[in-house]
Design a protein around this nucleic acid. Structure first.
Length: 581
RNA sequence: GCACCCAUAGCUCAGCUGGAUAGAGCGUUGCCCUCCGAAGGCAAAGGUCGCACGUUCGAAUCGUGCUGGGUGCACCA
């Protein structure tokens, strides 16, 4: 149930009635008619723009339409008032009973309240993290992991069929570097001093890999040329790295449905097939790129390469898929991979990338629309940087100096729930400050705490209601409460907020914007705390009253707020706390 | 040189896809706890939404052009 959607249906039905009775001309397009919460509370509880969007096509004054519509809407038992205002807004007030019924609805549906059929079972693939399997995950990956996971949960909640997918970049030169680095650690495990040359990965995390290599291969790889061991060590090391990454993800509460391997695309003909397909569309050709404008690289020389015509899609340059020696560039397997996703029957693809991949967006979108003949959409969410702050100081990170903060460190310090929530308190395309002092602070300034505190208070009230007042606080029992007792404006205000939840889900899902959920929860928590505080001044707003029937109604509202908070936290992947300590 | 992202209160940020008098937290100022739900609450001040045109009933939101900041830019993934 979605009260805003219900009322919109009512508005549309009445508009059709007006068309049928000749007040409005036939055949008006009603798609733009919206029913929304007004920004200003003084403007009623719901507002519709119907009169304004229809005025021009109908050739009528907005107010004339609004008046006619208002008269018809008033006949509905849910509508208590309909006032024309401003340039032609129709402001609606609903009968308290309509709002009170919403509380029952929440209790009956539980965390399914707000679930939407928006997606209609369409298949969506969310590819995220996709960190190179060459080391542990660090903070920059964490944000992408959280955003991707929450977005996937949000879409599932909104009725999409979602796959969480990780693309393992195990096909390129960086895994050779990994193998060579691990080989040095293998030598080290045999008591030899490792030679970590410039360009190799110096991190300690490879020491256990070297040890494991020794356990498996003994000394059989020592003093052998690279050609003997490289392939085996590469597989062995990337497997161990992926194992580590999986554990890191598990620590964050992220579980992928599918791991796809870049390497696995080679030698299967998949790359060739995808390129062939593009060639048929005349998007692949042999050519020579212009030298880069601005500062030209020293060693620039024109080379003939196989190019993808991404300029046809607004890119500023065509992009090479083959090097001059005939080997594939990294772009080629990416084309094949996205072709593969298209062929698996997804309706929508979403990629979560770091902001440093911005230059990659156009060509990938081009590839997907070409290979799917515009059937499949690709949305790429670029995740901006995370700046770590501690004691007011920026925590400087440098891979070379070994001072980068791993995801594991972060989780150990503040816990997965805090990491997840905080990472979602900003739009993806805005840089985020992660302040260690702030996120562990217990104050209104800290949204994690504030939302968790609301939930803890709710649980505390429920315990008290059960214990002291001997109330049956099961949802079944509470949903039978006489909800007309929830007549106070402060209570109705909280209920209205609950009414926005289903609407928010659809907006957030449409825009692929999970951060909206976090902000909504903060607002809901804030409204709830406000209601609690009003109980200080006005005894009638306290949740437990002398009269059991009244208490039951108020506890039903409290519980309904708890249900929505839990549903929201569930989407964010944050564990609701029962008690603050 | 080009592309992408960002610019909203002193600070950190929302702003429901074009709606009405642009919101929240922090900070500032002023009130409120011998008791009842103060790890707090109530209230006030604070804005040419970077600038300029344009689109229309209506723009923080859409378009164009600027300004300032960030990121990325040929056989690395």
């Amino acid at each position: 149930m979605n009260l805003f959607a219900d009322i919109r249906e009512l508005v549309v039905a009445e508009l059709q009635g007006l068309m049928a009775s000749g007040v409005l001309p036939q055949g008006l397009d009603l798609a733009a008619v919206a029913v929304e919460p007004p920004r200003d509370q003084g403007h009623g509880e719901m507002a519709t723009n119907a009169a304004m969007v229809l005025a021009k096509p109908a050739g009528m004054q907005p107010r004339a339409i609004a008046d006619a519509l208002a008269a018809r809407l008033m006949a509905d038992p849910r509508v208590a008032g309909a006032d024309v205002a401003g340039p032609g807004f129709l402001n609606l007030r609903l009968e308290p009973a309509a709002w009170q019924g919403l509380v029952r609805e929440v209790l009956v549906q539980g965390t399914g309240y707000g679930r939407s059929s928006l997606g209609q079972g369409r298949k969506v693939n969310v590819e995220f993290v996709s960190a190179n399997p060459t080391g542990p995950m660090h903070v920059a990956h964490a944000r992408g992991a959280v955003v991707g996971d929450a977005l996937a949960a949000l879409l599932a909640y909104a009725g999409f069929e979602v796959t969480r997918e990780y693309y393992i970049n195990d096909g390129g030169g960086q895994v050779d570097v990994l193998a060579r680095s691990a080989y040095e650690r293998y030598r080290e495990a045999h008591g030899l001093s490792p030679e970590i040359a410039e360009g190799l990965y110096p991190g300690d995390y490879l020491i256990p890999v070297g040890q494991a290599l020794k356990d498996k291969y003994g000394d059989s790889l020592l003093d052998q040329p690279e050609s003997v061991w490289l392939a085996d060590v590469r597989v062995f090391s990337t497997d161990m790295m992926m194992e580590m990454i999986r554990e890191d993800l598990a620590g964050l509460g992220v579980k992928m449905d599918v791991y796809s391997s870049e390497k696995a695309l080679y030698g299967t003909g998949q790359i060739e097939a995808a390129i062939e397909r593009l060639k048929k569309l005349d998007l692949i050709y042999q050519g020579t790129l212009e030298p880069p404008k601005g500062k030209a690289p020293e060693d620039w020389e024109p080379r003939e390469q196989t190019l993808f015509r991404s300029t046809a899609f607004g890119d500023d340059q065509d992009r090479p898929v083959q090097k001059s020696d005939g080997a594939w560039t990294y772009f080629a397997p990416d084309i094949a991979y996205h072709y593969n996703k298209v062929m698996r029957g997804y309706d929508e693809l979403i990629n979560i990338f770091g902001a440093d991949h911005s230059g990659y967006v156009k060509r990938l979108k081009a590839v997907v629309s070409a290979l799917s003949e515009n059937r499949v959409t690709l949305d790429i969410k670029l995740i901006q940087l995370v700046k770590l702050l501690k004691g007011g100081q920026i925590v400087k990170m440098s891979k070379r100096a070994g001072t980068f903060v791993t995801l594991r460190d972060l989780i150990e310090e503040v816990g997965p729930d805090v990491v997840r929530f905080v990472m979602l308190t900003r739009k993806n395309d805005v840089a985020l400050d992660f302040d260690f002092d702030k996120v562990t602070e217990q104050s209104k300034d800290n949204p994690v705490f504030y939302v968790q505190y609301a939930n803890a208070r709710i649980n505390s009230i429920l315990r008290k209601a059960r214990g002291d007042a001997g109330l049956d606080v099961s949802d079944a029992s509470l949903s039978a409460a006489h909800l007309a007792h929830l007549g106070h404006e402060a209570e109705l205000e909280v209920i209205r907020k609950l009414g926005e939840w289903p609407r928010l889900i659809e907006i957030a899902a449409k825009g692929h914007e999970p951060h909206r959920v976090a902000f909504y929860l903060y607002e809901l928590a804030s409204d709830f705390h406000g209601l609690w505080n009003k109980g200080n001044d006005d005894d009638s707003l306290r949740f437990l009253q002398g009269d059991t029937a009244i208490s039951a109604a108020k506890i039903a509202l409290v519980r309904a707020v708890g249900v929505v908070i839990c549903a929201g936290l569930g989407i964010l992947g944050v564990t609701p706390v029962e008690e603050m300590r």
